[in-house]
Write a protein that binds this DNA or RNA. Sequence first.
RNA 1: GCUGACGUAGCUCAAUGGUAGAGCAGGCGAUUCGUAAUCGCCAGGUUAGGAGUUCGACUCUCCUCGUCAGCUCCA
Length: 586
Amino acid sequence: MNLARGPKEVQMADLETMRHSAAHVMAEAVQQLFPEAKLGFGPAIEDGFYYDFDLPRALTPEDFPEIEARMGQLIRSALPFRREEISAGDAEALFQSLDQPYKVEQIKELGEQTVSVYRQGNFVDLCRGPHVANTGEIGPFKVLNVAGAYWRGDEHRPMLQRIYATAFQTKEELDQYLFRLAEAARRDHRKLGRELDLFSIQDELGPGLVLWHPKGAVVRRAVEDFWREQHYRKGYQLLFSPHIGRLQLWQTSGHVSSYKENMFSPIEVDEQFYQLKPMNCPYAILIYKTKIRSYRDLPLRWAELGTVYRYERSGVLHGLMRVRGFTQDDAHIFCRPDQLQAEVAGVLDFALFMLKSFGFKDFAIDLSVRDPSDPKYLGSDEVWDRAESALLEALESRNLPYNRAEGEAVFYGPKIDIRLIDAIGRSWQGPTIQVDFNMPKRFDMNYVGGDGQEHRVVMVHRTVLGSMERFMGVLIEHYAGAFPVWLAPVQAVVIPIADRHLEYAQSVRDRLLEAGVRVDLDERREKVNYKIREAQLNKVPYMLVVGDKEAADGSVSVRLRSGENQGPRPLAQVVETITRSAASKE
RNA sequence: GCUGACGUAGCUCAAUGGUAGAGCAGGCGAUUCGUAAUCGCCAGGUUAGGAGUUCGACUCUCCUCGUCAGCUCCA
């Protein structure tokens, strides 16, 4: 796509320039505080900017006010940004004299004849630009955070301190952004998971291992039921398979050679080694191979909610989003080469349909291909090219925009990844579609063609949600815990006003239970206010208050979690409203 | 795994070297109440675990485990 830049893009470019300039100002402020600071990179990023420093001591948030104060001063001084083009040799000498080894390295890395440097006040930085005219053009800003970051993103290089900050054109936009951060914290699935009693991850059990509490299990079950229903509808059959299997199986599949660092250690039983499964595919393959398959049988679409265990480095675990034991909503499609593109396109449609069913509108698509120089990838160039073109054609047949991501493929094949965008704008890899010519070869998987000859089957690995854990995490944040009726752990709570209304309240509860509504009865001897408050905090969609009036005429007073009080309505009508709302899945 | 911060009652947080405290939640009792917290009493802790310094450690040091922010890596 080569569209002319509209006003919005121009504005974004301005914002980026301003933020990049703000990064220079922050670097000057930090250098005032620590004259011996060594500078790394300092780019603008999506929601602000950062700068990396090598400093004599670790920074803490207590340092931020001082940094901000100095930045403010520099901005008020309206110092002009001055660009200079100098020879690479002069630049090297300059930064050598300033004792800036990372800048010197960067100049060498660039390998240019001349480079540009920008100066403002007493600060000079190697920089391509552009910048705003003077520091006075930098808008309202805030220093947000500090964390470690490897020099050049390489874990074998030194770790620098990265200061994150942001800047906007106006105070209102800054405040809006800060509000968004607070909102994200409010929606954090780890916090809501505890408050709504959905799940826990406990030290005693182990990091990255999830316990689903009854209420969380109800939500997950609702998601899974919908998932199964849709799979049957789309011509899938369902499988079950065990959590461990002989290590040999994983040697054949290539996991032991290409995926070992993500696998739990093998378990020895009766002098045989078994492996906790990191993926489900070999099991589906074994089922495929239990008999001779005809071209008429294909495609076979076999789905499984398969629980896998992967060793994830301790620092990467994050609530439900990144765990060590999780259930993939996996499927393996076995098809003929001539069916491949249609199958991939079908999965693409399916995945987008699923996301939309759960109210997701924001997502991004990556076409992840291999880096030919990385030895972990199995198979020939020819096979990889064929797989990639199948994915590409499917994307193009649906006219979907995508980013090409070099070196992001799995070891056995390229893939399409769909990323969900969460509350803070972080993206999480969800659905994935992987074309695989390698496993069929390694496991010698064939079908008999119309010509009576054996042909190699093609395999597609895919998920349409990602994993149940991550999807639930994203779902919790997406709805801020206020699930739509069809997913809500408790759909309605009956609130009797006094003990004498208990009997009627029970009959209301029973009536709703019969209609298939997940309903609680709050029979505690507490005031209405107290029970309403609790139901509200639990984000229960319907609160049904019953007192003398309701008991007398067979009604219930309906209060919604939005705060809306709908007053008394006939019970039959309310049952209808709730069941219909659940059935609509909205 | 790395850098930094942190770990006190179920939850949110006090107590900066002198033998641990509050609010909410929980239990018991009273209150029978109309749309976001009724009152009183009670109980609850090997201060993550271990070692050390000290007359004395929640507090200082070291190790282990875990959490958080990010980096690196992924459903």
